[in-house]
Design a protein around this nucleic acid. Structure first.
Lengths: 208, 208
DNA sequence: AAGCGAGCCGATACACCGTACGAATAATGT
DNA sequence: ACATTATTCGTACGGTGTATCGGCTCGCTT
């Protein structure tokens, strides 16, 4: 598992093959099948292993918003360390021990709220969904330049005339200025989105 | 492309291989490489093709919230028709013509808002992120029973003692009741999350 | 009408994948 | 010391994406 994680960290999830992991361990491919039944099992184990890194060391902030923010930020950091995590969470339900501990911790963050359990679960699901979506997009944008050949120049050479044509076509009057000006902007989009969401949730709480 | 989409609709994205698509077309594998350079290209084409289905037939509602909701609901419907879409959008940036048309249309939905373009883009990104996250999770839950062997019974037989142990361990006091009671709940979680988010955004608009 | 070049089709081949099978070996319990 | 079990491993099968190259079929130019 550690070997597989090391490979994935260094070369991406695609480099994790049974033969490769075995080699890294000084063994032959089929040896691994004494410990796992299918490759999927290895991936599940990897996923749950890094899920442990998502757990926040107690104690959580008292304020539920601060607590949720802490957890959400942590998730983003973990994906930054292990970019392949997004591929896993986007393709398999994560119900390993550490994954469940994460849910439990998130529920604990809402202890102070006076709403029923189902509502709490919905709040968490919604925040998690947003986080997942944002992190996937961020991860994609971060990975794109690296994936497309060694040199960014080549990719830019292809992309530029394409975008130039788009702008020139006039079919995208609203999008064009954003492309020309660059959409980079500040990096607080994640925080802003989280706060919008938490604002909306807070406004819907009983007693307000 | 149509052949590949048909295969993916019927048997999932994993069934889409060069040889398989070629066979479906009454051709040999390498024939496809006259039209594409890599398999990735085919996947990009597929992605952008179904991206067209996300486009809403004009006119959009005047109210920006209603317009955004319409678009977001459409996205969910498309994924329901083509579940493999989530695998694609989660793994590649979608900048095909139809993908860009979708962005343009979303920007158009915000025409009435008196905020700068960058803010509009952030609003869209945030809503899209949430949608993507939710739809991935939904799609995962929907696919899980089908993926795990033919019979749900077998999976349940494995899952039950696992969950029983979790509940019995006492390590998950907040999660346990949710597992026992079932987290099913109503199906309006998506709408609720969207509205929370839109509430938060609306509250942050200037002039309020 | 002849000729030619470009695009399309196809067979074959290579390296890699996950893993089923069965034999050989190592570790363990009796 | 022996029997049993667990672990390792070689080999093989059917799959994948795609590089290479040899014909073929057109439409265009001359």
């Amino acid at each position: 598992m550690a070997a597989a994680i090391a490979i994935a960290d260094a070369e991406g999830l695609g480099a994790v093959s049974i033969r490769r992991v075995a080699t890294e361990l000084g063994a032959r491919a089929m040896t691994l099948y004494s410990y796992i039944e299918r490759k999927e099992d290895l991936l599940d184990l990897m996923a749950d292993e890094v899920a442990a890194e998502v757990l926040v060391d107690e104690p959580l902030p008292e304020d539920w918003r601060a607590a949720i923010l802490t957890i959400a930020r942590r998730e983003r950091e973990v994906v930054r360390r292990h970019p392949w995590r997004v591929d896993l969470v986007a393709q398999r339900v994560s119900v390993g021990p550490n994954g469940l501990r994460h849910v439990e911790q998130s529920l604990a963050a809402l202890d102070g709220l006076e709403v029923d359990q189902l509502t709490k679960w919905r709040i968490l699901a919604t925040v998690d969904d947003y986080s997942l979506g944002y992190i996937i997009r961020e991860s994609l944008e971060r990975a794109a330049p690296r994936t497309m050949g060694v040199n960014d120049a080549e990719r830019a050479a292809i992309a530029e005339p394409y975008m130039r044509e788009l702008v020139a076509s006039g079919a995208f009057p609203r999008l064009a200025p954003l492309i020309e000006g660059g959409v980079a902007g500040a990096d607080d989009t994640y925080e802003r989105g989280l706060n919008w969401l938490l604002d909306g949730i807070e406004g819907d709480l009983p007693g307000r």
